[in-house]
């Protein structure tokens, strides 16, 4: 397993071949993205969730849990310090838990491809719960959210002035907002700020102010009939004291149920696979065309563009005409 993950991460021919074999065995796992600002307690929460899943299920119902913890690479050296395991020591010695640290390695596309590959490997190996930790609020998080079925955005009280600390963009990817470190002062302010932002971002949700309600039944929906909407849930946790973990797991289960009952699970899967297909097709077509095109001709057209004799559109037209 570990070796396979390395090959996938390095995008070797044997890694690709293995992924091709694996793919038909994927599609069973619940992928849970965990993101948020540095130090908000993502790793501690992942540790608690994994422990919870391993302790509550019994026998065959005890899901195997995989954790992919992504940390940034240094832009200067290309190296990285991957320190998330420090907070996951409770999981040591459990053969049903597999933790893998990954460095973002600069390229965003590469990260999503490597993460998606690792997820497929875990999925095919029977890991039913796959937790993916990423830091920050950049493009990587949006990509990971696209990959995950359920995305948790972790906030902590006292990270600067409440509203400003909460990026509007991250609310759009959050299925569940977690206020971790709820033992710290300021949790009420954080929660109020989040609720305010949610109301702005999800005006339809106002018809259902009760946040614990996972989704509205179609009959209750006035603005968008027949399409049940998910109103992001807010949960409080204290990861270092194991508080609120069962409630968080419940919210995750509610979201999964919503995805399945609303057809959103299939819709997301379809959307993801077709956009993956398109990306790969783009790359393959360009590679194929580049291999066939006359290098001399290509350079002459590029040169005409650089000296502004022709426009980019004209350049493309010329190249495609051959």
């Amino acid at each position: 397993m570990a070796r396979l993950l390395t090959q996938i991460e390095n995008d070797t021919p044997s890694g690709r071949a293995a992924l091709a074999e694996l793919f038909r065995h994927t599609g069973r796992a619940h992928l849970i993205g965990v993101t948020g600002a540095p130090g908000t307690g993502k790793s501690s929460l992942v540790n608690q969730l994994a422990r919870f899943y391993r302790q509550t299920g019994s026998g065959a119902a005890r899901p195997k849990v995989a954790i992919i913890a992504v940390d940034p690479s240094s832009p200067f050296s290309g190296g990285a310090i991957l320190g998330d395991r420090v907070r996951m020591r409770d999981l040591a010695g459990d053969a049903g838990v597999f933790i893998r640290s990954m460095a973002a390695r600069g390229s965003l596309g590469g990260l999503s491809a490597a993460t998606a590959g690792a997820v497929q490997a875990f999925d095919a190996a029977g890991y039913e719960m796959i937790l993916i930790e990423t830091v920050g609020a950049g493009q990587a998080e949006v990509d990971i959210a696209r990959l995950a079925h359920t995305t948790l955005v972790i906030e902590a009280p006292g990270l600067g002035d409440d509203i400003q600390a909460i990026k509007a963009g991250i609310l759009e990817i959050a299925d569940i907002l977690v206020i971790n470190k709820a033992d710290q002062p300021g949790a009420d302010n954080t929660e109020r700020a989040l609720r305010n932002m949610l109301e702005l971002a999800h005006p339809v949700g106002r018809a259902f102010p009760e946040a614990s309600r996972p989704f509205a039944s179609p009959g209750q929906m006035e603005t968008a009939p027949n399409i049940p909407l998910w109103m992001p849930l807010i949960r409080r946790t204290v990861a270092i004291q194991s508080l609120g973990i069962a409630e968080l797991a419940e919210a995750i289960a509610a979201h999964r149920q919503y995805l399945q009952e609303s057809g959103e699970w299939q819709r997301r899967e379809r959307q993801r696979l077709s956009s993956d297909l398109e990306t790969l097709l783009h790359e393959a077509l360009i590679a194929r065309w580049r291999a066939a095109v006359d290098e001399e001709y290509y350079r002459s057209v590029a040169n005409a563009l650089l000296t502004r004799q022709i426009s980019p559109h004209e350049a493309v037209a010329r190249l495609l005409r051959g």
């Binding site: 570990a2 240094s74 050296s77 310090i81 991957l82 320190g83 420090v86 020591r89 040591a92 640290s101």
Partner: peptide
């Protein structure tokens, strides 16, 4: 890290079993 390597840091008080398990998974 500054020499370009990926360093998995596991922290204090690791048993040999924990170290071997992490080395394997990583």
């Amino acid at each position: 890290r500054d020499a370009g390597m990926e360093v998995i840091y596991t922290g204090l008080r690791q048993t040999p079993e924990m170290i071997a398990e992490a080395a394997l998974q990583e």
